[in-house]
Design a protein around this nucleic acid. Structure first.
Lengths: 155, 155
DNA sequence: TGAGATTCCATTGACGCCCATGAATTCCCA
DNA sequence: TGGGAATTCATGGGCGTCAATGGAATCTCA
């Protein structure tokens, strides 16, 4: 399982190519499924990505009887149509498909943000706006130690 | 097991030939059952396809005593009669059978949409209409992370 | 022999591969 | 510990290859 974290600003060149940040590339490599998949997030100007294993997992569950309610299965099948496989060049770059670039508004810079099992791609300014907005919404102080105990609370 | 995802618009030429999208072709190839099977979807202007292994699986279950209620078996046997095997030319194209083309209304362009273990073939405009309709019906925001948790819910 | 089907070849445009550059970081050794 | 060497990484650009598509040639069966 690939784990993504940290933020990386990468240049989009004239051909529409972007370097996958080295740490993310390593995460994909070491997870054993070096292919990555992108998908536009419905309702927000952001692209999300994950490794192939993540997608295969969704597909397996979607095709397992009784594993989930029908609407959930419908949503997964719907989103499968929106997904795009990335193929990397020897330098670790991929072509950022124009429709996806349009969706998140990234023109010359792509901000990669790790989200654990997935990662996001933002337009830098939009990412900053979303980040500060979310932070003030959640409030409170966030330290590593505090995060540890957050994880222990029962819902 | 072949896994199909993504959307691909392919041209239908004067002879009724269509190129199977390269990613789908790879998926079929790597699954070990390079043959594909098509079937009209009852009640919607769309064609669905899958690999041979998927069909064999249905048949196996249909002939396993007690594996499913009788009406389900009847439905499977009925649909087996509607299925068509595709044979590819050296370039990876197949002739899109006229009756199936008529069923989905595709005239000069075929939209291939991945659905996990199966894929669909649409007339572009009809696909777009069905997609937006389904989207608004399901509602909510759709992100990769959210999809993950959708898969965990019990019905 | 003619119509439909299948194989073969030809074109083109996008994409992947290769090489080059520069910057920044890490490594190494005195 | 300081500085130089060697990697690694990000990025740019040229070029070859392959996928998609069109059309000609060949085959098959009625």
């Amino acid at each position: 399982m690939a784990v993504f974290f940290g933020t990386h600003a990468m240049k989009i060149d004239g051909k529409g190519r972007v370097s996958m940040p080295a740490p993310f590339r390593d995460a994909l490599q070491k997870s054993g499924s070096p292919d990555a998949v992108l998908m536009p997030t419905e309702g927000a100007p952001v692209i999300e990505g994950c490794d192939r294993a993540y997608v295969d997992d969704l597909v397996t569950r979607a095709y397992t009887h009784g594993a989930m309610p029908e609407p959930a299965r419908q949503q997964i099948l719907l989103m499968l149509g929106e997904m795009v496989t990335l193929s990397f060049d020897p330098e670790g770059r991929f072509v950022f498909p124009a429709p996806l670039r349009g969706h998140c508004g990234a023109d010359d810079t792509a901000m990669f943000v790790g989200q654990g099992r997935t990662f996001q791609i933002w337009h830098p300014a939009k990412r900053e706006a979303a980040r500060t907005q979310l932070k003030s919404q959640l409030g409170g102080e966030l330290s590593l130690t505090r995060l540890f105990f957050l994880g222990q609370e029962k819902p």
